[in-house]
Amino acid sequence: MRPRQLLRHHLFWPIAALVLLLVLNTVSNPSFLEIRLQNGQLYGSLVDILRNGAPTLLIAVGMTLVIATRGIDLSVGAVAAIAGAVACTWIASGGSAATAVLLALGACVLLGLWNGFLVSVLGIQPIIATLVLMTAGRGAAMLVTEGQIITVDDPLYHQIGAGFLVLPIAVLVSLGVLVGVALLTRGTALGMLVESVGVNPRASLLAGVRSRTIIWTVYVFAGLCAGVAGLMISSNVNAADANNAGLWIEMDAILAVVIGGTSLAGGRYSLAGTLVGALVIQTLTTTVYSIGVAPNAALVFKAVVVIAVCLLQSPRTSQVFGVRRKAGPRPSRSEEVTAA
């Protein structure tokens, strides 16, 4: 790939930001990139970034498919809180970890069905339909935990968020789901059908695509992803905190999807982009802690990086780059890339 094409690739700037953040960290702390094997598990900053980013990545994968259908799911944070609340309450009352996980995920599938029902059957706008559960869901999680932080002590449950099989289990789960979804949607026509629904649900329906089923399914899948992420979050600290678990994670997930080049207007998506987006967001958070950005400046620091990436990625900016470098006889090239 020639440098010009490289520069115009939709993941060039997010990856550049990621590399820049890693360099920044390494400069401030030379041992940042070090990874060592400790008690049979990998340990180091990079591993922490992957592990802490796993819930966001998982939710972002679900979100990618929802957004590809021109939808959005604001309720994922609340669903994650419900999953943790259900699982920890069950364990705290003497239940086994396995049943707790099944119960929690069952509840999340139901919540996904509810979202999908509102959007695909009743035709309510996704942002409103999922807003219902975003606000009410956290209340439901608090009902489950009776407003308390439920602490559990179950070694098996602790594995989901903090366990290791050389790599953190949470990372393996998230990457596994990412690869699975990529194979399933890109290896078959399913991905194209999802995109066609996002471009025009009615036209897709007329062309014989089951729009309703596809839309319903992606919301259920997003709910399930949020549920697993919620289990990771709560198992990581051995506790369910209905107020704070997964708070604003929907925003991080949407941001990861957008940074990755998936259009909020639906109709196209990039799972590799979502992976890069989620890594950028988590690395940004870790950078704030590691290089010692003052807490009251942390949000500004994050905002500046995100704005910079989004600006550099915008069609207008890449056009500017295209125009400036337009030496050859192919004037339509830049438009082609922005449309791709």
Binding site: N29, D48, D241, Y289, I291, G292, P295, A298
Partner: peptide
């Protein structure tokens, strides 16, 4: 070093991990 852990367990754990590494 001093950072915002947001009064939560997850926040405290994440910040502490970064501290321990740096």
């Amino acid at each position: 070093a001093t950072q915002d852990g947001d009064f939560t367990r997850s926040g405290g754990k994440e910040v502490m991990e970064a501290f321990l590494n740096s």
